[in-house]
């Protein structure tokens, strides 16, 4: 167990949207300007609180997508009927303000000092905190071998598609594979289907490499993948998980 850090009081701060970037039809990235942002580790999250004119508040957690060392950026997937995400994805504009608190969560994090190979397994928008790790690796000039296995419905639902294409070419030691669950591109080697033990064995690391595995996505996806990894012989202590319900 790592030594703990004494943390300051966790309080709500005003964040201003500095920029917005569409990612897919249903997801968008908000780059935030948070005065006195204390910095974050790859994989951490923040709480967002919106307050209506009548004082009603709604609060949700969102993973940080950006690398440490820069301003926090959140990538938000719209949940239809949600209280927070439709505003963040469809309405919020640069200059708008809302409250955040964080960063929080020290468990589902990766730091460049960790030298074990890394397997990242994303289900849908579970790619967001994993993208922070991919960016952190590049920003630190780390040579730790990374593999990202990204399960998504169709090519159109891939978040960060252009950046992932570029990084798979430029970030040496980073491998990226996709598992399309509904529609695969014509040239894709595998028919649409759920991520399974065969794909994890092909694209993951052998257990004797003792990789650190990070699995993030909807609860059912995370349960399935984490069980497959442990059944394959990976040390449960090295299979870290984050579930966002669904």
């Amino acid at each position: 167990m790592a030594r703990a850090a004494v943390l300051g009081r966790l309080s709500w701060q005003v964040a201003q949207i500095a920029a917005v970037r569409p990612e897919t039809d249903t997801a968008r990235t908000l780059v935030l300007d948070v005065p006195d942002w204390p910095g974050h580790r790859a994989g951490q999250h923040v709480d967002v609180r919106l307050t209506a004119e009548d004082g009603y508040t709604a609060q949700r957690s969102y993973s940080i997508a950006s690398a440490p060392g820069g301003p926090p950026a959140l990538t938000v997937q719209r949940v239809d009927g949600g209280e927070v995400s439709p505003y963040l994805v469809d309405i919020a504009a640069p200059g708008d303000r809302f409250e955040v608190r964080g960063p929080v969560g020290g468990y589902f994090t990766w730091q460049p000092g960790d030298h074990a190979p890394v397997l990242l397994v994303a289900g849908g928008s579970g790619v967001v905190p994993l993208m922070s790790m991919v960016r952190a690796r590049a920003a630190a000039g780390s040579r730790v071998p990374f593999r990202l296995l990204y399960s998504t419905r169709t090519p159109a639902t891939v978040i960060y598609a252009d950046e992932l294409r570029r990084r798979s070419r430029d970030d040496h030691g980073l491998d990226i594979a996709y598992a399309y669950t509904r529609v695969a591109p014509p040239e894709h080697p595998r028919p649409p289907g759920r991520l399974d033990a065969v794909l994890l064995a092909e694209w993951g690391w052998p257990t004797e490499f003792a990789p650190n595995c990070y699995v993030c996505g909807p609860t059912g996806f995370v349960e399935t993948v984490a069980n497959l990894l442990v059944d394959a012989g990976h040390d449960p202590a090295r299979v870290r998980t984050e579930r966002f319900g669904g």
Partner: peptide, 26 residues
Amino acid sequence: MTFLDGNELAAPLREIFTVDLTVASG
């Protein structure tokens, strides 16, 4: 019923404790 995991406890527990209890073991 769908469940989440203890990562979600990070902020609520940090309201009252000065260390990140989500990395504690119990």
